[in-house]
Design a protein around this nucleic acid. Sequence first.
DNA 1: GCCTGGCACTCGTCACATCCGAGTGCCAAC
DNA 2: GTTGGCACTCGGATGTGACGAGTGCCAGGC
Lengths: 338, 338
Amino acid sequence: MLSERRLQVLRAIVQDYVGTEEPVGSKALTERHNLGVSPATVRNDMAALEDEGFIAQPHTSAGRIPTDKGYRLFVDKLAGVKPMTGPERRAIQNFLDGAVDLDDVVARTVRLLAQLTRQVAVVQYPSLTRSTVRHVELLSLAPARVMLVLITDTGRVEQRMVDCPAPFGEASLADLRARLNSRIAGRRFADVPQLVEDLPEAFDAEDRGTVSTVLSTLLETLVEENEERLMIGGTANLTRFGHDFPLTIRPVLEALEEQVVLLKLLGEAGDSGMTVRIGHENAYEGLNSTSVVSVGYGSGGEAVAKLGVVGPTRMDYPGTMGAVRAVARYVGQILAES
Amino acid sequence: MLSERRLQVLRAIVQDYVGTEEPVGSKALTERHNLGVSPATVRNDMAALEDEGFIAQPHTSAGRIPTDKGYRLFVDKLAGVKPMTGPERRAIQNFLDGAVDLDDVVARTVRLLAQLTRQVAVVQYPSLTRSTVRHVELLSLAPARVMLVLITDTGRVEQRMVDCPAPFGEASLADLRARLNSRIAGRRFADVPQLVEDLPEAFDAEDRGTVSTVLSTLLETLVEENEERLMIGGTANLTRFGHDFPLTIRPVLEALEEQVVLLKLLGEAGDSGMTVRIGHENAYEGLNSTSVVSVGYGSGGEAVAKLGVVGPTRMDYPGTMGAVRAVARYVGQILAES
DNA sequence: GCCTGGCACTCGTCACATCCGAGTGCCAAC
DNA sequence: GTTGGCACTCGGATGTGACGAGTGCCAGGC
């Protein structure tokens, strides 16, 4: 096990490197942090830390920089989550309170996160799977064409066209609408399938086909996970990434365009609490030199979606984690109110 | 006026520079294009072109590069639009045909444009202003709370919450829904205001306030230009921009995040035909070293929205214009079919 | 046993000098 | 109007040496 002081040294190295972006040497360390020991001692500690794989030197006779493993230890053991200050909290709340609809909430959240962390922000739209049905509407657009509109408690609206196997009268449509809503309004998506299972039986033989078609479209809409969307922002912050620019930034931009990748990334993160994935801990190769800080958010106590930021492994973890947590909390509040 | 050969020289310079990204000199020119004259002659022509401001030298004793003015002349007079090849056309059509809904059409269009041009693609969602109303639906969510759903002929769905000044019965709601649809279904947005003007008069005094509220929300939705959305893609292509990286790319990323800027940019472009804005011709400063190629697209003969690409002024104009035009055409077809 | 000061060594960075060659402008000749 | 020749410019690549931050190791002190 590493001695207390060695951990202090690691912490100091991480902090300095994050601040200066330059490898940090033993002398500079003792000057900027009063560790109470001489550079020589620190050198010994650094050698030990390097043996253990927590730090590395880019080339001989340069200072040390933390490795992914070093950051991991830092995040797990050495760094807290830096809480937002009072003014910051108020600013967050004010900014989010101005939102007019769900799209706007998400858009504002993205901007906010990007600004607070000065990194790339990713916000997943509140997912369908965990929310409840507020209302289902059926519109007859043509004799054998119905539009299905699904409204969720998070304010999201999904619509689908349904081509019916047979013409479907207004009366039957109204009937179906009423029965459907009385059964599933307010219920969780997961429960819907069994709630509507026997619904076709309540209809005349001639309408049964259409009812089944509509229902299966509804169920499809409910489970369609890949319909999940997300919004990203703050990509301009990528320009602050590093010196060896094009190489670093390119794969990140590519990853950000692949929503599938990002969704998977957020999905892998733990359901509760904040998740920090550092460098190579990210499965997607293009993000191997970035860290992803993510957390679930939601209206009730339950998380309906996730949000987070993507930044260089050399990031201010305490600050970033604080901002992410705070934003998630306030977004949850906003969603609960609306 | 410039002689024919000088125009040839300009064309050759543009083509070479676009290909190599390096200033082009007189000798290289005569070698790669058989102009039938010696380097010395070309030098004279180049001096003339420089006097007129069509080309410039980055520093003494380097080759010439085209100026914005030079590109302008090239685009206006010297370059055609390079048509897509047969296989390319088929690929475009196949790719777009796979789309399942409007969101998907736009998403696919963005990807396609980005891939074809290897630049940043921008696609505006089909605008509300020129489309027609397919259906309006009113849902009672609470005694004094109505949800308004507007469905357009382009398949777009907009919804708004309406808080009514007084409770509003189901019967009145059905009445309003019916009257509203019979009046405005199939009509163009621009005509809606006068079509519904006298609608409140058909209702009892107690409901009139609510009807007015609903109608004004509807009208708001119709005119809400700033609700216009767009989708961008291919930002990873920015990494191919140039050598002096962070400086160039940063403002572009910022501009791309400011949807307002982009919408204005597209809006300024001419309504019919293709628009090419080169370098400083773009009002927005951050895009001063980029060119924007945009064109309207739409289902009927009429443009309902615009799409385009943003790339370095040093771009392959004929190819880019060809791709943009082709994509716009096919997207129009897809929209018309659905 | 741990900390410390000292010391020789490494190596990347910077400043400076040099060289090379692509490209130019100009001019005299065709 | 075109061409070949020629002197000139200047950016980029290459090389050299001094500088200094940083290291590892070791012997001595607490």
